[in-house]
Computed example of a mutant assay.
Amino acid sequence: MVQIGYTMMSEHAGPRQLVEDLVRAEEVGFDFSVASDHYFPWLDEQGHAPYVWSVLGAAAQATSRIPLMTYVTCPTMRYHPAVVAQKAATVQLLSEGRFRLGLGSGENLNEHVVGAGWPAADVRQEMLVEAVRIIRDLFSGGYVNHRGKHFQVESARLWDVPEQPPPIGIAVSGDQSCRIAGELADLVIAVEPEAELLTAFDRYGGAGKPRVGQLPVCYDPDRDAAVARAHQQFRWFGGGWKVNAELPGTSAFAAASQFVRPEDVAASIPCGDDVDAFVEAVRAYTDAGFTEVALVQVGGDAQLPFLNWAEKTLLPALRQL
């Protein structure tokens, strides 16, 4: 049976609300959770971008059952991989083994803030491979020295190491990233229900490993209100990650999505309260082979109504998949 997750979307709400909403998500029965790791929102209308690692620490203490995960962290620009390893080990200890470290090659939107420039996609993938290997070495608990093409590590060691290191997931969008994930990851991450990605992941060594997808949804009893909210805050989504990864800020996303119409968004994001539409959107992921699907409810003010509806209506329907 597919596992249904809840997304702490840090572009939609401040840190206290993110934790409070997650507590409710645990109460209503979501199987796991993921959290975005951003320095910027995609659009000004979203209005938030707290430091997710502080949020995760608070979430680990405020909850007792629900697994946590970054979706995803870039371990190559804003954060050095040695620091990411320390963050992840700490959250794993705080959550008593409920944390998974989701990694990806990043977005210009967030990584430009350190002023190091934005590398080409092939270089970003090289950096990710090197970073994952450093993180895994540090999870082993010993001293690590590394002289690599992109990173230097000098006598680093994690002094608080969990007995079970956090599993590492890698986000994929094409054959190159699928190869990296198949060879280096414990699970694969994607945001589109493309069976071809999972087939490639399996081909490169990922067979039998978890595969986690993410699906934006917009619940509201008033479907027109849901469509309007989804368009206001999620119209950026249609560009695809090969485009989205390159855009440098909210103004660029606003320009890139200026001609996206509400009906375009409604065609790709289930909006309203028709539970069958939500189920069919999740079914696209399960049919593609995903074992877990994290839902993103669009809009910070809409979380509690969505969670209450999910408890009574949506989750029981999704349990039938």
Rank of each mutant, 00 (worst) to 15 (best):
M1Y: 11
Q3N: 10
M8S: 10
S10G: 11
L18Q: 08
L18E: 02
D21Q: 14
L22T: 01
L22G: 00
R24Y: 12
R24H: 15
F30Y: 12
D31T: 00
F32G: 00
S33N: 03
V34G: 00
D37M: 13
D37H: 13
F40Y: 13
L43C: 02
G47E: 01
H48E: 07
P50V: 05
W53E: 08
W53D: 08
V55T: 10
G57M: 08
G57F: 10
A58Y: 13
Q61D: 08
T63N: 12
R65L: 10
L68P: 02
M69K: 01
T70F: 06
Y71E: 00
V72T: 07
T73D: 06
C74R: 01
C74V: 12
Y79V: 10
T90V: 06
L94V: 09
E96L: 10
L103Y: 01
G106S: 13
E107K: 03
L109R: 06
H112K: 07
V113S: 03
V113H: 04
V114T: 13
G115E: 06
A116I: 11
D122Q: 12
Q125T: 08
Q125P: 01
Q125A: 07
E130F: 12
A131G: 09
I135G: 07
D137F: 02
L138C: 04
L138S: 01
F139M: 13
G141T: 10
G142N: 04
Y143E: 14
Y143K: 03
E154Q: 09
A156V: 05
A156G: 00
L158Q: 10
W159H: 14
Q164A: 14
G169R: 05
I170D: 12
V172E: 02
R179G: 11
I180A: 07
A181I: 02
G182A: 15
E183P: 06
E183R: 15
L187S: 11
L187Y: 14
V188I: 14
A190E: 09
P193W: 06
A200K: 15
D202R: 11
R203I: 02
G205M: 11
A207I: 11
K209I: 06
V212G: 03
G213F: 02
V217Q: 00
V217Y: 02
D220G: 03
A226F: 00
Q233G: 03
F234M: 10
R235F: 07
G239I: 15
E246A: 15
L247S: 07
G249A: 15
S251I: 05
S251K: 15
A252Y: 05
A252P: 09
A255K: 13
F259V: 05
E263G: 02
A266L: 02
S268N: 08
S268A: 12
C271P: 01
D276F: 04
V282T: 01
A288F: 05
T291L: 02
L295V: 00
V296L: 00
Q297M: 08
Q297T: 04
V298P: 07
G300F: 11
A302M: 09
A302I: 01
L304Q: 12
L307S: 07
N308W: 00
W309E: 06
W309G: 12
E311M: 01
L314H: 05
L315H: 12
R319Y: 03
R319A: 09
L321G: 02
